[in-house]
Design a protein around this nucleic acid. Structure first.
Length: 223
DNA sequence: AGTGCGATTGACT
DNA sequence: GTCAATCGCACTA
């Protein structure tokens, strides 16, 4: 019989045609979709519940000052992985989000674990389900994502890929991106309303709406 | 070749 | 709530 907690074993990979070629659209689109990683230890997967958009021209975006060895994956056609190390210890998973040659990406910040939960608990050295992939560094550790996956195509059914999900669309909360020192005021963080697997402090219910997305030039409420 | 700084996390008061 | 570990990389000289 079916239930909400019934573990899925068969996913429909996300095609590039279905993935928006626009950073902010993609950040919203990915909420509720899945990250799937086939490893020698089994299939690890989780539902995306939190993203951040780093669009072209954003001073906080890693490709802001052009191509470097680290950020080159951001310039790949939308749907490729950009994996980098932050603060010397934490790996971050991004999805490139614009046409080839345009640097931009969506940071995947948190997952609701679906399959491979015991393996995730082992990798994260905790049994707390809520903390397995709540935060970008934790997410990468739980999903066994490493720098070798930098630059891989997430839309061609490789070991690491994105997938569709049936439970769509979620209600979306909107807030400021976390941890930035540049362009921190922009409302480019998106999360599934009510999810317990979202990182950071919970924002007040009703502050964001899927019906009223803030454009890149949305008025800044803090200045 | 040297320097400064993070898209974080976990430990601690 | 506060705070420091940690190191790859971009930038300067």
């Amino acid at each position: 019989m079916l239930s909400a907690s019934h573990p899925k074993t068969d996913f429909r990979p996300l095609t590039r045609a279905a993935l928006p070629r626009d950073t902010i659209e993609q950040a919203r689109f990915l909420l509720g979709r899945l990250v799937v990683h086939h490893t020698p230890d089994g299939m690890l997967s989780g539902r995306i519940v939190e993203t951040e958009a780093y669009p072209p021209g954003d001073a906080a975006m890693h490709a802001y000052r052009g191509v470097t060895p680290r950020n080159r994956s951001l310039f790949l056609r939308h749907g490729h992985a950009y994996v980098y190390i932050c603060y010397g210890t934490s790996l971050m998973l991004n999805v490139s989000s614009e046409a080839a040659g345009i640097g931009a990406g969506v940071l995947i910040r948190a997952l609701e674990p679906l399959t491979g939960i015991p393996q995730m608990m082992q990798a994260r050295a905790t049994t707390k389900l809520r903390d397995l992939a709540r935060g970008p560094g934790r997410l990468a550790m739980a999903m066994r994502i490493d720098k070798r996956l930098d630059g891989v195509d997430l839309c061609t059914g490789g070991a690491l890929h994105l997938a569709e999900d049936d439970a769509l669309p979620p209600r979306i909360d909107i807030s400021m991106r976390i941890g930035l020192t540049k362009d921190a005021h922009r409302l480019l963080r998106f999360s599934v309303a009510g999810s317990r697997f979202v990182s950071g402090k919970q924002i007040r219910h009703g502050e964001g709406s899927a019906l009223e997305p803030p454009g890149p030039g949305a008025p800044d409420p803090l200045t």
